[in-house]
Amino acid sequence: MTDTTLPEGTGTSPVKAGMVRRLRTSMPLVIWCAVGWLAAMVLTAIFADLLRPHEITAMSLTQRMAPMGTPGYWLGTDDLGRDVLSRLIQSIRVSLVIAFGATIISAVFGTTLGFLAAQFRGWVENLVMALADFQAALPFMIMSLAVLAFFGTSMVLLVGLMGFYGWERYARIARGLAISASAQGYAGAVVQLGAKPSRVYLRHILPNVASTLIVSMTLTFPEIILMESGLSFLGLGVQPPQTSLGNMVGFGREYLTRAPWIMLAPSVVIVLTTLSISLLGDWLRDRLDPTIR
């Protein structure tokens, strides 16, 4: 029973081994590129302060809208003469930090609620599922816009808001897996040995559902990047003088005809990053968890 609903961890069934081998032989180049790109992005985010050639707000009035390839300003400058490369590096850091923070918040929050629903059932479960329905029924973008309208924009609010993105998926997955594990599976067996819920959930259920949750994280991560950059693009996310990828594209939009490079570089970074994570996520999903699409 549980064999079909739970991810197999160390299993080496012949079917699986064949699939992994197939993936290893047919996928590696794309996956390696994706991993390489993501590693570069993470390193850029970590060492942003060292890598930046200029201050992100440093304006050079003599070098306004310099095209790509200008010595010292390899990706050009914007309308105020600020270095696009430096701003891009800082944007990568800001966007990745927001997306990482939000992904982790939403995974922890959603999983916790899902486990609570599975543990207490009854009205707790009904409440969590009703909240999940509500979250799924209201487009997240619209909800975020409403919250930002009422509270004004701030970095903390933005991360907190993005931290709600996709929590209902983790909650549903965690609840479903925990219930099936308790009903007739290993978790029920441990409960009947006399274990406290904390032990059952942290030592047994969490490690068993981790791979499924990680796969969901690879789904929500790029979506959060897109959500944040969409809001920032509209001028409602990250606020100047701070900068993020979407925010750069938003500014570049006004110079689309005269200085397309301002929006080009951040657009490419967004597309390549979300693409890499999606590819990697797909690959991981096939490898770790054949039961979900």
Binding site: L226, F233, S278
Partner: peptide
């Protein structure tokens, strides 16, 4: 199709 943000 679904990794390119609509604004880009």
């Amino acid at each position: 199709g679904f990794t390119i943000p609509s604004f880009v």
